[in-house]
């Protein structure tokens, strides 16, 4: 999911930085207006660590090997902090291991951060309805959906960006075929991340449900 340096044209990388700056500013503003802005920092720091190390865990799915992204999980647990956590995680991945690149940091933050925010809104649909007896089932299902949306949407953005920015000196047909193969290899990851997100969320819901609450969505009693 990480776009490396030199793949996309320079204006697009600049636009990526611009949009990421705007989104980060917006997220910081929303956080700053909450009653206690530092409240979410401990869990944001811990999940940044999880996000940072997750990309080093490779799952061999022939013909490629894919890695966890966990942006859906970050969205569900962190809300607006998720975009900032992903930005920091991506920066560390880029400077330490060369995953992605510094010129494409903005683009990568958008590819993974925007789906994380959407996953957050999807998961917190559960707070829009009163608690019923099947609350646990709904929480699990929405968590699965959020995890799947996070990675699924990130994939769509990644492949879309690459596909619409093929340089003219490249054999477009071969590149499209290679992209299709890689996209197919990543499809199982949608299910895996969905299940993983659901497991983590159900676990948190049982042992520390307040971790899944945040200042922006008040649960309907």
């Amino acid at each position: 999911m990480h776009v490396p340096d030199g793949i996309l044209p320079a204006p697009l990388s600049l636009a990526g930085y611009g949009l990421t700056g705007l989104t980060a500013w917006f997220c910081l503003r929303v956080i700053n207006r909450s009653s206690d802005p530092t409240q979410g920092i401990p869990k944001a720091a811990l999940l940044t660590a999880a996000f940072f190390s997750a990309s080093l865990i490779h799952i061999p799915i022939p013909p490629a090997s894919v890695h966890f992204v966990l942006n859906g999980l970050l969205g569900v647990v962190l809300g607006y902090y998720a975009f900032l956590a992903i930005m920091v995680g991506l920066f560390l991945q880029a400077v330490m291991f060369g995953h992605g690149g510094l010129t494409t940091l903005g683009i990568n933050a958008l590819i993974m951060g925007i789906p994380a925010l959407i996953a957050y809104f999807a998961f917190h649909l559960r707070d829009r309805r009163p608690k019923t007896s099947n609350h646990r089932l709904i929480t699990g299902l929405l968590a699965f959906l959020a995890g799947a949306i996070g990675i699924g949407l990130a994939m769509v953005l990644f492949y879309g960006l690459i596909l619409f920015n093929l340089p003219s000196d490249l054999n477009a047909e071969a590149e499209r075929a290679a992209l299709a193969t890689l996209a197919l290899a990543h499809l199982p990851l949608i299910g895996i991340e969905g299940v993983f997100t659901a497991i983590v969320v159900l676990f948190l819901e049982r042992v520390k449900p307040e971790l899944l609450r945040n200042p922006w969505f008040k649960a309907v009693p």
């Binding site: 920092i41 401990p42 811990l46 660590a49 940072f52 560390l92 330490m96």
Partner: peptide, 23 residues
């Protein structure tokens, strides 16, 4: 690589503990 990952994780856990302790 392991040492690098561990130091980053330690830094982030430290950040978490710092803000959790301050509360």
């Amino acid at each position: 690589k392991g040492v690098m990952v561990a130091s980053v994780i330690w830094g982030l856990v430290g950040t978490a503990l710092f803000f959790a302790g301050r509360k």
